[in-house]
């Protein structure tokens, strides 16, 4: 086939395209946040002591961590959608510092014997189920938006989609979960988000290749 004919055929398919991939991602993230919060309110329930908890430094630290993590993850997904853009890994610095501060604070203020109890708390197994469930719809929405993208590495772009979905789910779950210890968050939230990240990588490898 002649290249000239291909160009003619492709240009006949010229039409107003929808929003750019960043626009689609913004819609997917909004949809994902809405679905995660709808499931939080309808299914899990927001913790009843929210007002009291918001005066608790460890709760505030937990929410600061998951919100900055979600913002960082969304920035990374946005960058991975474009073939010419590098990943702004620096955005992970803020949640990383918050997490390290939290763990340091915990070790400095708690008796060593109390640490395992704070790590496992009561709800670790529930956390590992709830965050992936809350993140499933956000992951589907973000991956759908990403099918218009041209990522350099499909598996990585899928993994980052799962990471962003997991961080969004963690924000919602954080408003339900009454375990505020940074040790608990560092261990179980991370594993739950990693599960979504792995799922995103596996799916992304298949659906985001171009």
């Amino acid at each position: 086939m002649k290249t000239e004919d291909l160009i003619t055929a492709l240009s006949r398919d010229a039409r107003r395209t929808g929003p750019s991939v960043h626009g689609r991602l913004a819609m997917a993230v909004a949809l994902g946040i809405a679905s995660a919060f709808a499931m939080l309110v309808a299914g899990l329930g927001i913790r009843p002591d929210l007002t009291a908890a918001s005066r608790n430094m460890l709760f505030d630290l937990k929410m600061l961590l998951v919100v900055t993590l979600a913002v960082a993850a969304i920035a990374l997904v946005r960058a991975s959608a474009r073939p010419e853009a590098g990943l702004p890994k620096i955005v992970l610095l803020v949640p990383g510092l918050v997490l390290m501060f939290g763990i340091g604070h915990e070790i400095a203020t708690q008796l060593p014997a109390a640490l395992p109890g704070r790590l496992f708390a009561r709800n670790w197994a529930f956390c590992l189920v709830a965050i992936p469930l809350l993140g499933a719809l956000p992951l589907a929405a973000i991956l759908t938006a990403m099918t218009a993208a041209a990522p350099r590495n499909a598996a990585l772009a899928g993994a980052l989609s799962g990471f962003a979905a997991g961080a969004i789910a963690a924000v919602a779950y954080g408003l339900h979960c009454s375990d505020d210890s940074p040790l608990f968050v560092a261990a179980w939230y991370s594993i739950a988000i990693a599960m979504l990240t792995a799922a995103g990588a596996v799916i992304g490898r298949r659906v985001l290749a171009w």
């Binding site: 086939m1 290249t3 291909l6 160009i7 492709l10 398919d13 395209t17 929808g18 929003p19 750019s20 991939v21 960043h22 689609r24 959608a81 474009r82 073939p83 010419e84 218009a148 993208a149 041209a150 171009w210």
Partner: peptide, 19 residues
Amino acid sequence: VQDVLIAIHTRRSSWIASE
């Protein structure tokens, strides 16, 4: 070249118009 032309076409919404 033809692969790239098709990719430019099918992935054109991944170009951000301000870039």
